[in-house]
Design a protein around this nucleic acid. Sequence first.
DNA 1: GTTTGTGAAATGATTCACAGCG
DNA 2: CGCTGTGAATCATTTCACAAAC
Lengths: 251, 251
Amino acid sequence: MATGRTHRPATRSRGIPEATVARLPLYLRALTALSERSVPTVSSEELAAAAGVNSAKLRKDFSYLGSYGTRGVGYDVEYLVYQISRELGLTQDWPVVIVGIGNLGAALANYGGFASRGFRVAALIDADPAMAGKPVAGIPVQHTDDLESIIAENGVSIGVIATPAGAAQQVCDRLVAAGVTSILNFAPTVLSVPDGVDVRKVDLSIELQILAFHEQRKAVEEAAGEPGTVLQVPKETGKGPDGDVPAVMPA
Amino acid sequence: MATGRTHRPATRSRGIPEATVARLPLYLRALTALSERSVPTVSSEELAAAAGVNSAKLRKDFSYLGSYGTRGVGYDVEYLVYQISRELGLTQDWPVVIVGIGNLGAALANYGGFASRGFRVAALIDADPAMAGKPVAGIPVQHTDDLESIIAENGVSIGVIATPAGAAQQVCDRLVAAGVTSILNFAPTVLSVPDGVDVRKVDLSIELQILAFHEQRKAVEEAAGEPGTVLQVPKETGKGPDGDVPAVMPA
DNA sequence: GTTTGTGAAATGATTCACAGCG
DNA sequence: CGCTGTGAATCATTTCACAAAC
């Protein structure tokens, strides 16, 4: 496996906590909805409910951005929309490339949410020569051979990887070498990148596994009657060779 | 907006921290790869590198599961694969339904990672009558009208929502009423669910916005020379009506 | 000698609760 | 009065560092 760091430990970014940054898009979405309904102001309580967080957290989050509210009144919707957009860097145009135009890549290319907030699909790239030239979501697919020039010509700094796992690291390396410094990875692999490059990953299978964990726990709790009860789940606490361990076992 | 809680505050689940649960699938993936290469044992250092975390974190994580390692040696790969699988509930079969068979839903249906780990796509559901009967990924699409009976007949407890945002809450309500207790939501909306139902969300646009934030910050740092320097970013600290605020402004 | 498992320390995030402003 | 903004308290997570186990 390649060396190099992965998932830089969070840019300490002028002091806005990473957890807050991750919620700003949520607030922005709720605010945009209010804005479309021409709601002029909103209280932390209302906005928090719309964003699915509690109001103390929301106010603390906003306090990192500055004092944008009015005591006794709330927040001006339009003004907050602008401030958060600017904080997130959405007041500028971000050309992105999507690499790997299979089912998922095509879905991403067609996803409206991209275009809506400063993101522009600048190019679609695939390794299959048969795909070259074929339009997906109105954009002609280009071949991987031209990856470097496509990045350079479009001034792309954000890349989306939707290739099979086996190709992801190689694609990642080429993207980074070509100047991409932020990567959204849909391939189920850990990507190694040099310092200064941000990677975020979206892994469907991981999300399902986390749900399965909680689902299983619910089933166990239910079977035991009282939810919250600390009960004896079948689980070896040592490496004892007996018990309910099946075929697969240690030496 | 509907009342009700969203994103239950983390099932305190027999004491395994939520952050640890979220990493177990990562370890499992790395271990599976080792297993396929017939590697018998692995040290915390090696496994951590493969999973993209540091070894102290990995050891602490494993300590919540029990003592599955051997000092001076490391962990038995096969044994750990089994223990983590069981902890995550992957030793049982989880039938899932996918609702909303557009581009994304189809991509999910075709996604191999589902089947590989205990998850089985039990049904595809869409509101478009024209889709009904058409096979996607070899599975015939069924109409939303039959949602409740499909859930019941297949014993489904995990649902995936890939509908447009406008339909998501309604679909969610029906899934929950029909007995689904875990939901993976791809629609860009906050879902309201009763207590006891888990929701995880995947939002492409949010991920991109987080990347844009860091990307912007890099650009600013670079322009200022020294990375890490606390420099003056254009940013009002008060609500002063002058400055670089454009058209959109507070009253 | 090597590598785990884990208390203790450090860091980070959330929640409380209320002073202060409009 | 109502609602924001924020210190202080609480809770969670990560990291350190080392004794114990092999």
